[in-house]
C-alpha cells in the first residue's frame, strides 16, 4: 500500500564537508534507501543557514525537523546535556544500560524534542599544545577553552582564555595562546595542525553528536517509519564509531608524520588527569542540577 512521501528539513551544526556531517549523511542516505525514498531529507544547510547555537530553537519551533547537534549546543536549554560527554559507555551500551532512555525522557520532557541517538560516539578529546609538558600540569599555559572543558583546564592550573574560533589560528601561530582542546578527529581539517607541536594523548570525555527530531514531526511518523529510524541509527552508531576510530587513528599517524610529538603520562599521572577531567565537569553540573546529576552518575557506574 502507498504511504505518503515525507520530506524532513534537516540542519547540521557544521558545514556539509565536515567529518560529522559526512557521518550524518550515512544515516540519512540509509533511511532514504531503506524507506524506498518515501522518507527523504532536505538539507537546509549548516551554520550558514541558522547559527549553530540557535539551531535548537529552530528545531523546537518546527522551523526544521531534524538536527545534528552536540550536547554542548543545547546545554543552555538543558543543563543535564553537559553530562553526555562524561558517559563511559558507547552508544549501543547506553541503550542496554537504560542511559539512552533516561536522556530521551529528559530531552522530550524539557525541550519537546525526540532524541534518536548519537553518531561518532567514543571519539575522545585531546589537548593540542605548542609547548611541551611532562606532567598533567597546565601551570603557566594559556589554553583556549570552550565551556566543554573550561573547568578542566582550570583544575589543571592552566589559564583559560576565550577566543573567537576565527582568531584561534593566528593566536596559536603568534603564541597568544599555547593550546586548545579538540576531539581526535577534525584538527587537520581546520588547519590547526600547522600551528601546534604536541598532542596530549590520554583522551578525555567523548563527543556527543546527537540526532534530534522535532517531537511533532516524530509523532507524525507511522510505526514503520519509527522502527526504521531506530534500526538505522543502531546500525549507524556502530558504523560511525568504527569509521571515526579509523579516522582518529589516521589522524594520529598523520600528526606523528608531521613531527607533532605525542605526550603520554605515567599510569598514575594518567589516572589523576582523567579523574580530574571528570571531577571538574561533575562539580559544575552538580551545582546546576543536583538530583539529575546524581541519577546520571548512578547510571554511569560500571
Amino acid at each position: 500500500n502507498e504511504t505518503a512521501a515525507i520530506s524532513l528539513k534537516t540542519i547540521t551544526f557544521t558545514t556539509k564537508n565536515s567529518v560529522w556531517s559526512k557521518n550524518f549523511e550515512i544515516f540519512t542516505d540509509m533511511i532514504e534507501k531503506e524507506s524506498d525514498r518515501t522518507i527523504t531529507f532536505q538539507f537546509v544547510g549548516g551554520p550558514e543557514s541558522i547559527p549553530p547555537f540557535e539551531q535548537i530553537e529552530a528545531l523546537k519551533n518546527g522551523v526544521v525537523d531534524v538536527a545534528l547537534l552536540p550536547g554542548a549546543y543545547f546545554v543552555p536549554q538543558l543543563p543535564e546535556a553537559d553530562t553526555m560527554k562524561l558517559s563511559p559507555y558507547l552508544p549501543w551500551e547506553e541503550r542496554d544500560k537504560g542511559i539512552y532512555q533516561f536522556y530521551q525522557g529528559l530531552i522530550s520532557d524539557k525541550l519537546g524534542i525526540y532524541y534518536l541517538g548519537k553518531i561518532t560516539g567514543g571519539t575522545r578529546y585531546h589537548f593540542y599544545l605548542k609547548k611541551h609538558i611532562k606532567k598533567p600540569d597546565f601551570k603557566g599555559l594559556k589554553i583556549r577553552v570552550t565551556p566543554i572543558y573550561e573547568p578542566f583546564v582550570r583544575a589543571l592550573g592552566g589559564t583559560a582564555v576565550t577566543l573567537a574560533p576565527g582568531e584561534l589560528y593566528i593566536a596559536l601561530e603568534r603564541g597568544v595562546v599555547d593550546g586548545f582542546g579538540w576531539p581526535s578527529i577534525g584538527v587537520t581539517d581546520l588547519g590547526w595542525h600547522e600551528v601546534i607541536k604536541y598532542v596530549v594523548y590520554p583522551g578525555f570525555y567523548q563527543t556527543d553528536v546527537c540526532i534530534l527530531i522535532n517531537l511533532k514531526t516524530w509523532n507524525r511518523l507511522d510505526s514503520n517509519a519509527k522502527r526504521l529510524f531506530h534500526s538505522v541509527i543502531e546500525k549507524t552508531e556502530r558504523h560511525s564509531y568504527e569509521l571515526s576510530q579509523q579516522m582518529a587513528n589516521d589522524e594520529k599517524v598523520f600528526l606523528k608524520n608531521r613531527g607533532i610529538g605525542v605526550i603520554n603520562f605515567s599510569g598514575e599521572e594518567e589516572e589523576y588527569y582523567l579523574k580530574n577531567a571528570d571531577k571538574a565537569a561533575w562539580d559544575r553540573i552538580s551545582v546546576k542540577s543536583p538530583s539529575n546529576a546524581l541519577r546520571i552518575k548512578q547510571l554511569f557506574k560500571k
Partner: peptide, 23 residues
C-alpha cells in the same frame, strides 16, 4: 521560506547572533 511566524521569530535570534560576534 522558514515556516511562517516561527521563522520570523528565528530571525530575531539571527540578528542577535550576527551582532554578538567578536569578528
Amino acid at each position: 521560506f522558514m515556516g511562517g511566524v516561527q521563522g520570523v521569530k528565528q530571525l530575531s535570534l539571527s540578528i542577535y547572533s550576527a551582532l554578538s560576534n567578536f569578528t
